[in-house]
Nucleic acid binder design. Sequence first.
RNA 1: AGAGAGGUGGCCGAGUGGUUUAAGGCGCACGCCUGGAAAGCGUGUUUCCGCGAGAGCGGAUCGAGGGUUCGAAUCCCUUCCUCUCUGCCA
Length: 425
Amino acid sequence: MLPLQLLREQTDRIAQALSKRGLDAGPMLEEILRKDQERRSLQAQLDETLAEANRKSKEIGELFKAGKGAEAQALKAESAQLKEQSKTLGESLSRAADALQEALYQVPNAPHESVPAGQDEADNEVVAEGGKRPDLPEGAMPHWELAREYDLIDFELGVKITGAGFPVYKGKGARLQRALIQFFLDRNTEAGYTEVQVPHLVNADSGYGTGQLPDKEGQMYELKEDPLYLIPTAEVPVTNLFRDEILEASQLPVRYTAYSPCFRREAGSYGAHVRGLNRLHQFDKVEIVRVEHPERSYEALDGMVAHVKSLLEALGLPYRILRLCGGDLGFTSALTFDFEVWSAAQERWLEVSSVSNFEAFQANRLKLRFRDGNEKPQLAHTLNGSALALPRVLAGILENFQEADGIRIPEVLVPYAGFDRIQLG
RNA sequence: AGAGAGGUGGCCGAGUGGUUUAAGGCGCACGCCUGGAAAGCGUGUUUCCGCGAGAGCGGAUCGAGGGUUCGAAUCCCUUCCUCUCUGCCA
């Protein structure tokens, strides 16, 4: 949710920025400002009425104390009338406030100035490319065939116990997955991120805090008996650690990393592009989250991009970095860099990380602020990124490092995995 | 899951319907005092919203949400959480 003050003071700039999402936000913003005006006017009226009622009540108290019961009775009647008024005003005010809130929820984050205008992923800007695409041996296979060949992942078993999109990892497949998690956590820790373990179920307040709610509840699994959601990413619980918090400026930046499974309904997805590990309902991910001073958030974003890049380079995977265009940018993000790994056997890019600066958009919902000395609290900036999402990294490793008689394990993973090759027999 | 006790400002802690304008203490900030400091003294110190150029004024806020009342931290209802005991359990 964009801070209202920003919308008031920089209406044109925000509208301009939003146009990069292909959104004609002008009328929307005007409507919000009108609703804001209405709310403020009602607030002023209500405050005045309540102030009057407060004065009267105090007077009544004093009259009673002085033993002037009759005069007090007369004032009571007046006071009761004020109460009636304030009740009506209060109802109007909360309706107006709700309407404003709802309208604000509809506005996506304003893209950063560096975000290119564009409709969809075709308009994303490639900002870097690295690693070497392999020359695959004769008879190279996509990862889902490799997974079957070497008995690493059993998709059908997952279907039996849960449903499509819930794979069962076995043997070296499971071990490799665990190795990756630990490798990422270790690297993130070395880079200054503090490891945290957080709940995998969150309440609705947390969903609102990071922007999964309202309107996108269909993307999360929801429990039937309790008002809880399975997390679609560790971003939700980790960022919400700071909901309703006022930090000291000296506590910034906050840097956290967390491993978690992620649950996504992915309603409406189908076809060849979602085969194998390409798109799942449950997958593992290691996330990095930062809370930053507004003046340093873009510097922090660059640092996160550099860090994620170093992970892919350590693994030796061919990758590229994209700056997302307005049309492809997530609802809550101001600037996002996506990382993609080249899937040699599928001959396509697979997204393995998304690193974003949300500026004050999430902080505004979260009421996440910081205080510099004796200054008034102000909204912090939040950022997060995957470092990294497991399944597609696994797919990339299996496909890119396959050889005629086995699969080579990246050197940095060998100490974690306990083996350097996957082969038959 | 059952029974009981609780939830008050940055922290501790008083407060059973009306000078509570939330006592008192600690912490913190500023000032006085001092050669400098400590002590001492004084002032200030929740957050959000509205009005205002500002000083400031007003409203809300005692876990959350409703209610009773002219008036609620205080009484009633709902709900969340914490602690103790019992039960269950990795």
